[in-house]
Amino acid sequence: MKRCFDFFVAATALVLLAGPLLVLAVFVRVKLGKPVLFSQVRPGKRGKPFRMVKFRTMTNERGPDGTLLPDADRLTRFGRFLRASSLDELPELWNVLKGDMSLVGPRPLLMDYLPLYSSEQARRHEVRPGVTGWAQVNGRNALSWEDRLSLDVWYVDHRSFALDIRILWLTVRKVLMRDGISAAGEATMSRFTGTKRE
């Protein structure tokens, strides 16, 4: 039922939002340059890698030594707007349509983090990652890593269609309130340095 719901909603949304997505793509191209989409390999269900896509929110500005500047220096006002409104996440509907992601589930993090999770934290990969999730509606990036990963595992243990609907509704409220967009003192979220797997 969950997969059928995901497919139907993602397909419908991509058709209905085709025009706005095109307009957003043009704005991203003009204000941030190319490529319009940011893609990165992330771990999916059972840690299987997939390529997640979203609208880019940062420039490619580099320092004198050729290395990328810190996130805070590359995140423009327009990029902050995309993140605050979660519009940058809309291309992930394609990942949902393909079956790499679900509408609701733990957010797909970096491949680099896989060896750093405890055995309990690693359970977040027992389900498909989501566009939104239980941690996102309970603090988003303002949460500590420990709390965020604990909420992800809580979702794995309590997942249901009714809970997914509740999370989707709460996500709309969170986006409108623009709550928990970044961690304290960070442009986005600090890197996870967790504990080694047991």
Rank of each mutant, 00 (worst) to 15 (best):
T195H: 15
E92A: 10
N138K: 12
A135Y: 01
R166L: 11
F81Q: 05
G47E: 06
F8L: 15
P129F: 07
F7G: 10
N138Y: 14
R166A: 12
P49L: 10
S160W: 09
R148E: 12
P64V: 01
G139M: 06
P43N: 09
P49E: 09
D147C: 09
Q136L: 05
P35Y: 02
F5S: 06
L24D: 00
F161S: 12
T67K: 14
A10N: 04
P91S: 08
Y113P: 01
M58V: 04
R128D: 03
Y113D: 05
T193I: 15
D179T: 11
G66R: 11
P70K: 07
P43I: 06
T67Y: 13
N141V: 10
A13Y: 10
R140P: 00
P20M: 04
T171H: 03
R173F: 07
F161W: 14
R42G: 05
S86R: 13
L37H: 04
V53I: 14
P49M: 12
L75I: 02
R107I: 09
S144D: 02
P43Q: 03
L22F: 13
T59P: 03
S86C: 13
P20N: 13
L170Y: 01
R62Y: 06
T76P: 07
Q40A: 02
Q121H: 13
N60S: 10
K45Y: 00
I165T: 03
S182R: 14
Y117D: 08
T171V: 02
T132N: 05
D164H: 07
L17N: 01
L69I: 04
L75R: 12
K98I: 09
A142P: 12
M58D: 08
L110V: 10
V23Q: 00
F27V: 10
K45N: 05
S39C: 15
L170M: 15
L149N: 00
R140N: 06
A162L: 13
W94A: 12
A122Q: 14
D88L: 09
D65F: 08
R107E: 07
E61T: 02
F50E: 09
Q40L: 11
P115C: 08
P106H: 02
A142Y: 11
R178G: 05
H125N: 04
K196H: 13
F7P: 06
D157L: 11
M177R: 15
K54S: 04
G19L: 15
R166F: 03
L75A: 02
D112S: 14
C4D: 14
T12H: 00
E146R: 04
D147W: 05
C4H: 15
D112Q: 11
L143F: 03
V96I: 15
D152N: 15
V26H: 00
W134D: 09
V153P: 00
P129A: 12
V9G: 08
A72P: 03
D71C: 04
V30N: 02
V127G: 05
H125W: 09
A135N: 10
R128A: 14
S182W: 08
W94G: 10
G44F: 07
A142W: 06
H158I: 02
L75P: 02
A18T: 01
L32G: 05
D157Y: 02
F50D: 01
L32S: 02
P108E: 01
N138D: 04
V28T: 03
P35M: 00
T193E: 12
